[in-house]
């Protein structure tokens, strides 16, 4: 049978291309242009070449922020992925409680970032916050505005509270798609609960878990609003992640050239890691014959 070739369908993609051009491509090209120039405002630019890139590569400030960012992403992934799987495994599979659980799990995801930050900022305050006041009453020295460890714990717990349910919901969807026959076969073989998880559930949810890891990595690597509202990047620079540092540079100091160079390097790191995750995900799908 002859296949009909109709290339006119490509025109249907045009609206998306225009949208992406205005929302991503043109701004990115402008950032590249800014990154090799210096500006003192008034739309006047002076050629700087690769000076900003050179300066940033030898800047302790950027490496420190990158280190903090990587540490933050690694910690939240190490907590949220196992915790999300654990919650998904313990969620009911049938009955009225399924809907209740799903709604409860979805609630944190519906709250805007700045509201999450404000909730935790008040929650952690020693004078009026339930968490801060309770910890203080128990004699635990907790003050996220002065102690870097307390600030880190607050930001991490806040992110875990906000986003673990996304991992749990994705893992739950993966678990629900496993046919009952697999569990019956495991029962006949008298497989232990651990072996059912290790050899049936985990391999079956690997694809969906990769999506969860990719989403959580990208989101955590770009985190800005929540830590900015809670700690403002402090105490000192303890919770100044890449995006907070970038905004300080671009809007606080109005250093457009260095900020553009910073943005490009930040973008390249995200692009590289996302590509690695995406490639692994696609290859896993191919291996599983999806």
């Amino acid at each position: 049978m002859n296949k009909t070739v109709n290339q006119k369908a490509w025109f249907l993609v045009l609206p998306v291309l225009v949208l992406v051009a205005f929302s991503a491509v043109i701004p990115l090209m402008t950032v590249v242009n800014y990154s090799v120039q210096d500006s003192f405002g008034n739309n006047e630019f002076f050629w700087a070449g690769l000076e900003w890139f050179d300066e940033l590569l030898h800047s302790e400030r950027m490496w420190d922020a990158l280190g903090r960012q990587l540490a933050f992403s690694a910690i939240i992934l190490a907590i949220q992925i196992p915790l999300g799987i654990f919650i998904a495994l313990n969620m009911p599979k049938k009955g009225v409680w399924v809907s209740v659980c799903l709604v409860l799990m979805s609630l944190p995801l519906l709250i805007p970032w700045n509201v999450v930050g404000t909730i935790w900022q008040i929650f952690g305050r020693v004078d009026i916050g339930l968490l801060g006041y309770t910890l203080d009453a128990l004699g635990i020295d907790y003050n996220y505005t002065q102690d870097p460890v307390a600030a880190w714990i607050t930001v991490i717990v806040m992110d875990v509270w906000h986003w673990t349910s996304l991992v749990a919901l994705l893992a739950y969807a993966g678990l629900q798609s496993i046919p009952e026959a697999y569990y019956q076969a495991a029962k006949i073989d008298q497989a232990s609960r651990w072996k059912v998880f290790r050899y049936i559930e985990l391999p079956k949810i690997t694809g969906v878990l990769m999506i969860a890891i990719l989403l959580r990595f990208m989101d955590s690597f770009m985190i800005y609003t929540e830590p900015f509202v809670v700690t403002g990047g402090g105490p000192g620079n303890a919770t100044t992640f890449l995006s907070i540092d970038l905004v300080k540079m671009a809007l606080g100091q109005f250093d457009l050239g260095p900020a553009a160079a910073f943005s490009l390097m930040y973008f390249l790191v995200i692009l590289l890691i996302s590509w690695v995750f995406y490639t692994v995900m696609v290859n896993l799908d191919k291996r599983d014959g999806v």
Partner: peptide
């Protein structure tokens, strides 16, 4: 407003 330069234009 895009602050074009010759090197970046050649690059793109």
């Amino acid at each position: 407003w895009m602050a074009w330069t010759l090197p970046t234009a050649i690059f793109f």
